[in-house]
């Protein structure tokens, strides 16, 4: 279980980090090329966008693992320990429901004819290639949502409020 967890963490961090870092480098290169070399890469903006979208759907999984998605915790104030636990489990199940349905729809989406025939305007990539970000991210998130429910049932609470990263302290 913990080896599986570590592998998953490594994959999530890797994809989200490489995508965001790549997008930042791409955007910086774009400005430098324009001002220093007076040239443009006409597909750079599109590449930045799709990298950030990938980083978003996978980064959302990491945010879930860090219990960082903001929500309105008003009911919890009025509930006792037991009620809070039920609420946390319910919340985890709803997240799992969301990820399960959207993730499944995402896999269907990329197999539809349109995803193969429509290509992105600049890079001319088939839509399904860039759209993969969604089913991949939400499938990973589905696994984490199940883990969250398991943790609530087993230990009485979901993911800890802030987790230490592999390197360095957390910002909070």
């Amino acid at each position: 279980m913990s080896r599986f967890d570590r592998a998953l963490t490594w994959i999530e961090n890797g994809i989200a980090g490489v995508a965001l870092g790549g997008a930042a480098i791409m955007a910086i290169v774009q400005v430098v090329l324009r001002y220093v070399f007076n040239t443009i890469i006409f597909w750079s903006e599109e590449a930045v966008i799709y990298l950030v979208i990938l980083s978003t759907f996978v980064g959302a999984v990491i945010a879930l693992r860090h219990n960082e998605h903001v929500g309105v915790n008003i009911l919890a104030v009025f509930l006792g320990e037991r009620g809070k636990r039920v609420l946390a489990a319910l919340s985890g199940l709803l997240v799992a429901l969301y990820c399960g349905v959207f993730g499944a729809l995402g896999w269907v989406m990329i197999t539809e004819p349109a995803a193969r025939t429509v290509v992105t305007p600049a890079m001319k990539m088939p839509l399904w290639v860039v759209q993969l970000a969604l089913p991949i991210g939400l499938t990973l998130m589905f696994l984490r949502a199940l883990e969250m429910v398991y943790r609530v049932v087993r230990y009485g609470r979901g993911f800890p409020e802030s987790e230490k990263e592999e390197h360095g302290e957390d910002a909070r």
Binding site: N13, A16, G17, A19, L20, G21, V52, S55, T56, F57, V58, G59, A60, I62, A63, H66, E68, H69, V70, E165, E166, H167, G168, D170, A171
Partner: peptide, 23 residues
Amino acid sequence: FSDLTAIIVRSARMSAMVMFIIA
């Protein structure tokens, strides 16, 4: 460089939270 990777991953998850709300 090793701090850098941690900072990028942290930023990815913090901005993902915001972008996920936007989406």
